[in-house]
Simulated scan of single mutants.
Amino acid sequence: MSENSGASFVTVRGQAISLETQTESLLSRYSSFAQTTSSEQSGKEKKLDTQIENTLQKRQEIIDDLNDICSKNPSISASKLSQLQRHKEVLQEHRKNFQNIRSSIQQERNRLNLLFSVKNDIAQHNSNTNINDEDEYMQNEARRIDQSHNVVDRLISQAWETRDHFTAQNTVLSNVNNKTLQVLQRIPGLNHLLGKINTRRKKNAVILSTVMTLCILFLYFTW
């Protein structure tokens, strides 16, 4: 019976050794995703993750079987108990490595997603800033155009007012001329009197000019 128990232990332990080797290979492949992490979990990564979990679960079941064999056989050798303990330690070590690799992948994925989110926020901010700058520029240009239009309107208004003043002054002068002509026509002798006054003024101007010329010549030749 002891030999049967020993054979069963060896057979089950062989399965444990095979799964340990398989787990090491899977963990080596799984660690490559920590070096080339993507922003989302790929199908290959997810499949490998599930495969490692299933393998570790199978190993736990095999260790439980080895425990049952040892517990049912009081005469089990110390070397077999030591082998069982070693399988337990290796399983814990592989589980720990698996969790560490999974954590590293997740941390790197979170970092990439954070960088991507920050880049998107910066791009969105720059886009909003450019839009705001364009809006502000257009508003400033619109204000400058409105101001220019207001200046032109004031200049046109002043020009119209000046033209109206000139027109009013022309009307006043025309009325004065008309009234003067009417007065002159009503008083026949007034035109003759004004003509004599103008003639007298012209004579006085000629006499004054002659005297001033003679005085200048006298001063020039006697100096």
Rank of each mutant, 00 (worst) to 15 (best):
Ser38His: 10
Thr21Tyr: 02
Gln22Lys: 15
Leu26Gly: 12
Ser5Ile: 02
Gln35Lys: 11
Gln22Met: 11
Ser38Asn: 13
Glu24Ile: 04
Thr11Ala: 15
Phe33Ala: 11
Ser31Trp: 00
Ser28Met: 07
Thr36Asn: 13
Ala16Asp: 03
Gln22Trp: 00
Phe33Gln: 06
Tyr30Asn: 02
Gly6Trp: 01
Leu26Cys: 13
Thr21Asp: 10
Ser5Cys: 06
Gln35Ile: 02
Ser39Gly: 07
Gln15Leu: 09
Gln15Ile: 04
Leu26His: 15
Ser8His: 05
Ser25Glu: 14
Ser5Glu: 05
Glu40Ala: 10
Thr23Cys: 14
Gln35Val: 06
Lys44Trp: 01
Ala34Tyr: 07
Gln22Tyr: 04
Gln41Glu: 11
Ser38Trp: 01
Ser8Gly: 02
Ser38Tyr: 08
Gln41Met: 09
Ser2Trp: 07
Val12Pro: 09
Ser28Pro: 00
Gly6Ile: 08
Glu45Ala: 01
Ser2Glu: 13
Ser2Asp: 14
Thr36Ala: 07
Tyr30Met: 04
Tyr30Pro: 00
Ser18Trp: 01
Gly6Phe: 03
Ser32Met: 07
Arg13Gln: 06
Leu19Ala: 03
Ser38Ile: 02
Gln35Thr: 10
Lys46Leu: 08
Tyr30Arg: 05
Gly43Asn: 12
Gly6Ala: 14
Glu3Pro: 00
Ala34Asn: 08
Gly6Gln: 14
Gln22Cys: 03
Glu20Met: 08
Ile17Glu: 13
Ser8Lys: 06
Thr36Ser: 11
Phe33Thr: 12
Glu40His: 02
Ser31Ala: 15
Glu40Ile: 09
Glu40Thr: 11
Ser39Tyr: 04
Glu20Lys: 10
Gln35Gly: 00
Thr21Pro: 00
Ser42Arg: 04
Leu19Ile: 06
Gly6Asp: 14
Glu20Ser: 14
Gln22Thr: 13
Phe33Lys: 09
Thr11Val: 13
Ile17Asp: 12
Glu20Leu: 10
Phe9Gln: 02
Leu27Thr: 10
Gly43Val: 06
Leu27Glu: 12
Ser42Gly: 14
Thr37Trp: 01
Phe33Met: 06
Thr37His: 03
Ser39His: 07
Ser31Gly: 00
Ser5Tyr: 09
Leu26Gln: 15
Ser31Asn: 13
Ser18Gln: 13
Leu26Trp: 09
Ala7Phe: 04
Glu45Leu: 12
Lys47Ser: 12
Ser32Gln: 13
Gly14Lys: 05
Lys47Ile: 02
Ser38Met: 14
Thr37Lys: 00
Lys47Tyr: 04
Gln35Arg: 09
Thr36Val: 08
Thr11Arg: 11
Ser32Tyr: 05
Ala7Glu: 14
Leu27His: 09
Ala16Ile: 02
Ser18Cys: 01
Phe9Ile: 07
Gly14Phe: 04
Ser25Ile: 08
Ser32Glu: 10
Arg13Gly: 10
Ser5Phe: 10
Lys46Arg: 09
Ser31Glu: 15
Tyr30Gln: 03
Ser18His: 04
Leu26Pro: 00
Gln22Glu: 12
Phe33Leu: 08
Ser28Gln: 15
Ser38Cys: 09
Leu19Gln: 02
Leu19Ser: 03
Ser32Arg: 12
Ser38Lys: 14
Ile17Cys: 06
Thr23Arg: 07
Val10Ser: 05
Thr21Arg: 12
Thr37Tyr: 01
Ala34Trp: 05
Phe9Asn: 02
Gln41Trp: 03
Tyr30Asp: 03
Gly14Tyr: 06
Thr37Ala: 11
